[in-house]
Amino acid sequence: MPALPKSFVPTLLIGIVTAIFMTPLMWLVVSAFRPEGDILGHLSPLTWEIIVPARVTTENFTLLIENGFGRAVFNSVFIAFGSVFLGLLINSMAAFALSAIEFPRRGLVFAVVVVTFLIPFEAIGIPLAGTVRQLNLDNSYAALMGPGIANGFAIFMLRQFFLSIPKELFEAARVDGVSLFQIYWRIYVPLSKAPMVGAGIIIFLFQWQAYMWPLLVTNTREYEVAPVALAKLIGQFDFDLGQMLAGAVLLALIPALVILPLQRYFTQSIAGTGVK
């Protein structure tokens, strides 16, 4: 019997572990394409039909869209990408000031940034939502996006990277009379692909995972985000599992398509913070 390659056992083991972790997602995808009545029928007793659908349909998706879920998905995507766009801009500007510009009390200002990322947003969401409602700012994109744009951890991460950019570049540009904004925009931002992607993913996941905050500051369909819309399906008297699973597929697919190709940069940006 030929000797097994050295990588055989670990590959087999990680394959088994991954298969276990993937099972709920595979079941989710397969069930979303089943007729509603078939979904629970195939769970117990255990047969291959759990993974292999007997009948395939896209009815769940069309029903979900007809029921206005498209609006909720649009809201979630708009909020997440809007926050990433605005957040990358203002967080990197703050990081630039905290790394390249010398000004009095810089250390103190940086300490404030650090304190803000020690504050867990989930914990202060409830009183803050009360204020937002009192000011009649609930049910608006501003209320939904607001907490996710400025991010202390993103500022911290970008600053760590900016500090590693050779100061000579900054000085040479200053001698040539280049404005600070041009230095930021033409030198620092283009050099910072990995930490910008890392910060973007942090902001994206914050908004994509948001559940309690949207629950607190919206109560109209117009501003409902997708996870809240789906969670409400389960609370309704006549709840349609097929639509819920179809929605779950969409909500898992969008971030997977956005984040997985960029995962390499995310790992690099973790390295930059000194975690590893």
């Binding site: 997602l25 559940y211 789906l230 969670a231 699973l245 909500l251 898992a252």
Partner: peptide, 16 residues
């Protein structure tokens, strides 16, 4: 592959 569960919103994972 093992990173996939974390990109699914936690509310959705809870439902599944």
């Amino acid at each position: 592959l093992n990173l996939l569960p974390v990109v699914v919103p936690l509310a959705i994972s809870s439902l599944i």
